[in-house]
């Protein structure tokens, strides 16, 4: 799940003479390569958890494009992730995104294995959230391998629509079926507003022919010394929580509030809280909070060290969970 870009959290980067991203460019052909390597020492939120080395991101992202003339561009994307291979000590990589498309002016069309429109939604700023989803869309699916997607990027408004023809149950939650997603984001005098909607038609007949509707709204504002953001999302059926083993018709809501302070040109501090609740009687809501600090090396701000503490009021086996903490290093190129 993605987050709205908080301006102080993502400042401009410094580098030497190397050209970022573009590896080769000739006669309208472009090849770009990006990478994101992030490794953490983490003691997860939970009961009697032990510290481990965790691999959050180990990605290589390949992008090729051809200028087809008359404003038309043909492109392809192939992203490999290696974190599961590193974590489980197995060989091979995981294909995270694989799609091709055409771009004309402000609009692009792509199809293949890619993120849904609703993946654009969300503002939380934690390195890890562990006891709640990042938002209600994340409680279902936000990517698929039978997806078509249209992006329209105007001066001040960003619109994405996607359709997943047949989602696999890759998270083992019994979630498979069709998804229709829509995301709209805009910037009004520095106030970033966004809204998303997802209609999910599960293969599972337990929802009695109904579809699962999820919507969310978010807002973010950069005050200069800090950025403040909040989101709220709700879904009308649930099958993704420890407290529900089968489909339940209920309004499951989640909100997140996050603030990022640029305490120095190299250092950002973020604090945030998220709460997940249901209108079903007896449901015990879960609140998780976090605080993290990120230091970007002034010589190369693509290299960052960070640390985070997080806690939750979730109970596991009738025991309150212990605070989690992590520290790590992230290198992007």
């Amino acid at each position: 799940m993605k987050k709205l870009l908080l301006a102080v959290a993502v400042s401009s980067v410094a580098a030497g003479s190397a050209n970022a991203a573009t590896v080769y460019e000739k006669d309208g052909f472009t090849y770009k390569l990006n990478g994101d390597f992030q490794v953490q020492m983490r003691e997860a939120i939970g009961v009697d958890e032990r510290a481990e080395v965790e691999y959050d991101d180990l990605e290589l992202k390949n992008y090729v494009s051809y200028d087809l003339g008359n404003g038309l561009t043909g492109f392809g994307r192939l992203d490999f992730g290696f974190k599961d291979a590193a974590e489980d000590d197995t060989n091979g990589s995981n294909l995270e995104e694989a799609y091709v498309g055409l771009k004309y002016g402000v609009a692009s069309f792509s199809f293949g294995k890619q993120n849904f429109a609703s993946d654009e939604f969300g503002i939380e700023e934690a390195y890890e959230v562990e006891t709640i989803d990042e938002d209600r869309f994340d409680g279902f699916e936000t990517d698929g391998d039978d997806s078509v997607r249209v992006d329209v990027e105007l001066d001040n408004i960003y619109i994405v629509a996607s359709h997943e023809m047949d989602a696999d149950d890759d998270k083992g939650k019994g979630i498979g079926g069709e998804f229709y997603d829509l995301f709209v984001g805009t910037d009004i005098a520095g106030l970033e507003l966004a809204a998303a909607y997802q209609q999910y038609r599960p293969v599972d007949v337990a929802v009695n022919g109904d579809s699962v509707g999820t919507y969310g709204v978010s807002a973010a504002y950069d005050f200069g010394f800090m950025s403040l953001a909040a989101d709220y999302s709700v879904s009308d059926w649930t099958k993704d929580d420890d407290q529900n083993v089968s489909w339940t018709e209920e309004d499951m809501t989640q909100y997140n509030v996050a603030a990022v302070f640029g305490v120095a040109s190299t250092t950002d501090v973020a604090v945030g809280v998220g709460n997940k609740d249901s209108d079903v009687d007896g449901y015990k809501d879960v609140t998780e909070w976090y605080a993290n600090v990120t230091y970007k090396f002034p010589e190369a701000k693509n290299v960052r060290v960070f640390a985070e503490v997080a806690d939750s009021d979730l109970k596991k086996s009738n025991k309150e969970v212990d605070m989690g903490m992590l520290a790590g290093l992230r290198v992007k190129f």
Binding site: K2, L5, A9, N19, A21, T22, N34, F333
Partner: peptide
């Protein structure tokens, strides 16, 4: 460049 911190990558 990118609409989220996670998805933002350096570009010249």
């Amino acid at each position: 460049l990118g609409r989220s911190d996670d998805d933002a990558f350096p570009e010249s």
